[in-house]
Write a protein that binds this DNA or RNA. Structure first.
Lengths: 337, 337
DNA sequence: CTGAAAGCGCTTACAG
DNA sequence: CTGAAAGCGCTTACAG
């Protein structure tokens, strides 16, 4: 069955395509099109099952009503939630979203950005990979609106929406301390990304504020792609240097799962012997057997803000001021007081 | 900075856009374009940082190199994995993917399909919602290639790739029985979808094959959107009717989390008092404290197959035969033998 | 109140 | 070996 075109409707009614286009786009009033003919157009379009070709419209208007979303890995629940939140906010505004996974890989990130730009997306929501400052700078120069999310580069002036990692790390470590923990470790990733650095800074600040000493051997990093094998080695090292370690802050939920695994094998009790706290997607530890403190980032709010900022910029091109938003996380404290 | 067009390159070199287009699309040889000029075109395109406008190309060729993906909820880890697997296979073949969440809602599914069709996607991968037979039939008539995934409608002839739910349910219940369980419950969703029915059929078959009686009060369903509150009520009813219930098959992982919760409150041991088995995304219970049997569907294989079938159909339009694939799941048995 | 015509940026028969 | 021209299906000044 051939698809109906604007011109089919026009021919069928003996009017111009201009007329039909105007009516179907709800511009009858502004163009003083008679109610009678407008009604007939609407009716005929429906009867002929007309569906506009959005590609043609896009070529003409220069707008695709599509935004690109770049995350590290859509299969990871944290990014899956970001995707959903972006989708909802975009859909509400008539936009669709094309997603791509960067796998924290610089080259892949570069390719993805190019593809998305060639596809003429109207804007981009990006969870940036480390060492992509140049890609982001180039993007700025090409005048394509974008908003960084979850992470950002302090040296580049861009829009971004992130969460308050420093405060969250500080506060959750304070909770550990308040519950008697004194030798607290910190495990991050070896990414050169500022949000991780801020978490570590927050951790350090909490120690300092409580008069606890900071020990280098309790402040470690693992490689993201090999965390499963790295984590036990790191924990071995930490416990060897500080056998009295009694709590641990982990920079994401997967690290925490591996830590649980490690502690079970080592027959340490959680949280009595070693308490765990980590950054995790909302709800992630709700059904976990062990009471683990988590920092839940306000994903939905972050994405709503990000999409809104993006759409604002799309609609008033050439806006020179950047929006930089930091939203508070939620602490879920599952043990002690 | 203005974007470079084909015509800019042509003008710059004093050749036609035809020439430039042919070269950039790697058709120099077929059109016997001199190596010299081809090289110059390539060089200039690079120097001018040319990025083709894929929207214009799409309008001309009638192909968008985009596939639409409709899942129930991209934030759900199961569907997030589907998204990732689809993305990888699509990207490998030069396609991008637009995703949409249906929320198991018929109207939403209808809207999404329309939007995607208007956007001229070349094909669709769909996890269909219940009661959308009509939508799927209409899609067939509009000649847009599509493949159903995870679920399908037995009454409609379409492409689909699913997993062998009957065998998986049968086999995992057999494992419960083999380990001494005799009063086994089954909790599904109240969706009118055949894959769920097959799971229940497999459950029944395992009971029958083992000489265990099937009890209606042990075979229950909950409403998807209210499972959290429904599940405890259902389990109350089951245990009231059969206080000796010693195992339970749950049709997805979330149900299982709520069941764990329930059993902990009831101070029942897992698996000694009541063993649990469920369908779950790969790896989902790897870090769980309780040894729970899971059926892991071969998501990656399903999606690779689905995308391949879709692309085959896109490239040889009017292909009349439907591919219907059922792939074996993997059983992860975590207790007993 | 309505229509003829140009144009978005490509690709691709067709001609030479 | 290369180019002029049509056309994909819309939207939108512009004219009347």
């Amino acid at each position: 069955m051939k698809r109906t075109l604007l011109s089919d409707i026009a021919r069928c009614l003996g009017v111009s395509t201009t007329l039909v286009s105007l009516v179907l786009n709800g511009k009858s009033k502004e163009n003083r099109i008679s109610d009678e003919i407008a009604a007939k157009v609407l009716e005929t379009a429906k009867a002929m099952n007309y569906k506009p070709n959005l590609v043609a419209r896009s070529l003409r208007t220069g707008q695709t009503q599509t935004i690109g979303l770049i995350v590290a890995d859509i299969a990871n629940p944290f990014f899956a939630r970001i995707a959903r939140a972006v989708e909802d906010e975009a859909t509400k505004n008539g936009y669709s979203v094309i997603f791509c996974s960067s796998d924290e890989n610089t080259d892949k990130s570069d390719k993805i950005i190019h593809t998305l730009v060639e596809r003429q997306i109207d804007g981009l929501i990006i969870v940036p990979v480390e060492n992509t400052e140049l890609q982001i700078t180039n993007l700025k120069e090409s005048n394509i609106p974008f908003v960084l999310v979850d992470r950002y580069f302090p040296k580049i002036k861009t829009n971004y929406v992130a969460s308050d990692d420093y405060a969250a790390a500080h506060d959750i470590v304070m909770h550990l301390i308040k519950n008697g923990k004194k030798v607290i470790g910190n495990i991050s990733f070896d990414f050169d990304l500022v949000h991780l650095k801020k978490r570590t800074d927050g951790y350090k600040a909490a120690l300092a504020a409580s008069g606890l000493v900071y020990a280098m051997k309790l402040d470690e990093k693992v490689a993201f792609h090999t965390m499963e094998t790295d984590l036990p080695l790191v924990m071995d090292r930490m416990l060897q240097a500080h056998p009295d370690m009694d709590a641990l802050l982990l920079h994401n939920n997967q690290l925490c799962y591996h830590a649980i695994n490690y502690l079970q094998k080592a027959e340490k009790r959680i949280p009595e012997d070693i308490a765990l706290a980590c950054f995790a997607p909302p709800g992630d530890f709700d059904f976990n057997h062990w009471p683990i403190d988590t920092v839940e980032q306000p994903i939905q709010l972050i994405c709503q803000n990000a999409v809104q900022i993006l759409l604002d910029e799309i609609h008033q091109k050439g806006n020179p001021d950047f929006k930089q938003v930091s939203l508070p996380s939620k602490l879920i404290l599952r043990f002690g007081q």
